[in-house]
Design a protein around this nucleic acid. Structure first.
Length: 440
RNA sequence: GGUUCCAUCGUCUAGUGGUUAGGACGCGGCCCUCUCAAGGCUGCAACACGAGUUCAAAUCUCGUUGGAAUCACCA
């Protein structure tokens, strides 16, 4: 009885974006819910595109999101192991050398397509004679290698898609070693999953056909086939938002004031039958994860909706969650949070209450009267109420005509938290001077 | 083109043969209040199309249309 173990396996070829994040999140949540472990695996087999800078950026984003891992691995450090396994499979004939050039393969694909045939590899390499191979070698060609798929039906029970079936005849033998001897993703991924004891693979549905061929790889190397869950891909309002095309970065969202748990709450529930509501703790969110609640259709991801949700999230954000990031105290936070669009904006209200602002005088007669009526005491809510009543009776103004100019004078802003709360925070001295139109 | 998947309010969805087709987000209105915001209440709004099965279809079948993934010496 082994416990649950999942992995997030990004290739460091770009920054963390919304598609990536969703995959990482579901893995993390599942591990947490099941009391299992979450590991980070850097899939850097593609030397040409992998960059350290991207890897660092992804680690930073994962940490910021709270998606921490307790183990990690790097594919580029495991080539010896991959070599060992591939040698064995080559000797068993399960992996075979091919000598077509990329151009030839491209030509074959186009020809098949134009004939209305599926562009599946024709396995010509399986019928090379010794002479053919010798002549390729003389030409200086180097082989690339493919994994030979066995004929027959491949099926598995997917946690989100249910029973899934593929006929191997509709799949190409995947290339697993490049001409230059480097590895492609398919087999190393399977070897790692076996070696690290991965029990569940949660990934985007763009991998479903890979899963079909990888199941045969698991079997070929004598590993246990993990449980799969393929999440429907997110689509954008216009066009797609696949994991490589969707460029909406986590770093950009963060810079825009979108909160980490707002992103996680939103992504965890988008496309499910559950309400998208704020969760302030990843573990709480983890408890609610349920694959049966995930729809099979592709949800549309709209940044504007995320931003809107983020504001709603902030309006009910508990002080404990933000206390380490803001200088304001709990009372101040609770008083102003319902009017914030970004957590950092708490500083602007801090400045309005405690710093210096230039008031806006819209109705001088009114604000002068207000100043003279303002009592030099502790400006409690009660004091505020009697003060407002006095201004009302003296000027005959009420509603917006009354409050808007007072607010502008007191805060320099047209909107914000309730005045009765702000007044006590501003204090008599500043309030008086601002009502008189002075900087204070 | 082959394979696989999908199709209910603007959006995410509930719905498994008989429902006033429900909820959430958004949007509109009203209330509260001291303006705005926040909060409360409320309203508008959907079964892609066409056949078939059935007393009865959002629900089952077939077809059509539309969308997506994949078919890389990317992952």
């Amino acid at each position: 009885m082994s416990s649950v173990k999942v992995r997030f396996a990004p290739s460091p070829t770009g920054h963390m974006h919304i598609g990536n994040t969703r995959t990482a999140l579901f893995n993390w949540l599942w591990a947490k819910k099941m009391g299992g472990t979450f590991m980070l695996r850097v899939d850097d087999t593609d030397f040409a595109r992998s960059k350290k800078e991207y890897e660092d950026s992804m680690r930073e984003s994962l940490k910021w999101l709270g998606l921490v891992w307790t183990q990690e691995a790097r594919q580029s450090a495991r080539f010896e192991r991959y070599k060992e396994v591939t040698q064995k499979l080559i000797s068993e004939g399960r992996i075979y050398p091919c000598y077509e050039t990329p151009e030839e393969l491209e030509f074959k694909r186009k020809r098949s397509l134009s004939k209305g045939l599926p562009p599946i590899y024709d396995r010509q390499a399986l019928s090379y004679t010794k002479e053919d191979i010798a002549s390729f070698e003389r030409e200086g060609r180097k082989p690339h290698y493919r994994f030979k798929l066995n004929v027959g039906e491949i099926k598995w029970t997917d946690e989100v898609r249910g029973e899934v079936k593929y006929d191997a005849a509709n799949l190409s033998d995947p290339i697993i070693i490049r001409e230059d001897g480097s590895y492609l993703y398919h087999l190393p991924s399977v070897i790692d999953d076996v070696d690290f004891g991965i029990t569940h693979i949660l990934r985007g549905e763009d991998h479903v056909t890979n899963t079909a061929s990888q199941i045969q790889m698991f079997e070929a190397i004598g590993g246990t086939v993990p449980t799969f869950a393929h999440l429907p891909l997110l689509t954008g309002k216009e066009g797609k938002l696949s994991k490589r095309l969707g460029s909406l970065g986590v770093r950009e969202l963060k810079a825009d004031g979108v909160e980490n748990m707002a992103i996680c709450s939103y992504l965890a529930k988008l496309g499910t039958s559950e309400e998208i509501k704020p969760y302030y703790d990843l573990e709480e969110l983890a408890k609610t994860l349920d694959f049966s609640k995930i729809g099979r259709a592709q949800p549309k991801f709209d940044v504007e909706e995320l931003r809107h949700f983020n504001i709603k999230y902030i309006h009910s954000l508990p002080y404990d969650v933000v206390k380490d990031r803001i200088s304001a105290g709990q009372t101040f936070w609770e008083d102003v949070k319902a009017n914030l669009e970004k957590v950092e904006d708490v500083a602007v209200w801090d400045k309005i209450c405690n710093g210096e602002i230039t008031p806006v005088i819209e109705n001088k007669a009114l604000t002068d009267a207000a100043a003279s009526l303002l009592p030099d005491t502790d400006l409690t809510v009660d004091v505020f109420n009697t003060w407002i009543d006095e201004i009302k009776s003296k000027t005959g103004l009420k509603g917006k005509d009354l409050f808007h100019p007072v607010r502008l004078a007191l805060t320099g802003e047209a909107s914000g938290p309730e005045l009765k709360i702000l007044l006590s925070l501003i204090g008599y001295k500043k309030a008086y001077r601002r009502l008189k139109g002075e900087k204070a």
